[in-house]
Amino acid sequence: MLILDCSPLTLSADEAREKLLYLLTQLAYREGSFTLTSGRYSDYYINCKPVTLHPQGAYLVGSLLHGLLPPEAEAVAGMTLGADPIVTAVSLASLQRQPANLPALIVRKQAKGHGTQAWLEGPQLSPGTRVWILEDVVTTGGSALQAVERVQEAGYRAEGILTLVDRLEGAEACYQEAGIPFRRLLTIEDIRAYYRARHTPER
């Protein structure tokens, strides 16, 4: 397993962002010829799970995303499966700083087939709790909006959407149209620039 050459616990925000870019380009990002789930062609592919499930990567993701949350945030939620490790990492990061003690909610893709038939997994929160929706990667924005709907149906307030990586393919405009605040840590161009700077042969 790839291990960073330093402890992420001691890094500044800028240093942490640099190390996270390194992990993403080493473990999550590939260039080539790829056919996506939609059937569309892409000249790159990104899967953040090898980073968000990496011990050091999870710490960096949790710390950096937590730093982008507004102080009034009271909980975080995300659509399974991509957001599962992210909401956990951000919740853990909230033990050390404000906004503090953020519970994590996981949004199911289908309602639970037994018992309470619930769409959300996690602690029961007070009605009107201010929840931020977390994503690993956003493309057109549909998945996060589904999570927004489920959170609202549960009686909570979906205050905004925060993503690790924005593919810059329409999600921001989608959220603006829906009236949902949107924040991102990185864009795909940040990752591509970092990757190419380190993989382009010198002439």
Rank of each mutant, 00 (worst) to 15 (best):
T140R: 00
Q26M: 14
L105N: 12
E135N: 09
G62Y: 01
S42D: 04
Q117E: 11
T35S: 10
Q98T: 07
E31Q: 10
A144F: 00
H114M: 13
S94H: 12
D14H: 03
R108P: 01
T88W: 07
A118R: 14
G67S: 06
Q56G: 00
P71W: 07
A100R: 15
W132A: 08
E149S: 07
S143P: 15
T139V: 12
N101Q: 15
G128L: 00
H66V: 09
A13N: 01
H66W: 08
L20Y: 01
L53G: 02
I86S: 11
I46L: 11
G141K: 00
T25M: 05
L11V: 02
W132V: 06
Q117H: 13
G39D: 13
E121H: 04
L11Q: 08
G32R: 11
T139C: 10
P103S: 15
A75S: 10
N47V: 05
F34S: 09
L125G: 03
V61D: 03
L60H: 05
P127D: 12
G78T: 13
T52K: 05
A118D: 13
Y29T: 03
Q98P: 01
Q146I: 00
K19C: 10
M79A: 00
A73T: 13
W119N: 07
G113F: 08
G67D: 03
S12L: 01
V90A: 15
G113N: 13
K112N: 08
P50C: 12
P123N: 08
T25Q: 02
Q146Y: 04
L145Y: 06
P99T: 14
A144D: 06
G78N: 10
R97K: 15
T140S: 04
A83S: 08
V61C: 02
L95T: 09
Q26I: 14
T25G: 03
T37W: 00
T140W: 00
R150V: 00
K109C: 12
L120I: 14
A73Q: 03
G128T: 05
Q117R: 15
H54W: 02
L23P: 03
T88I: 11
P127N: 10
Y22D: 03
H54A: 02
Y22L: 14
H114R: 13
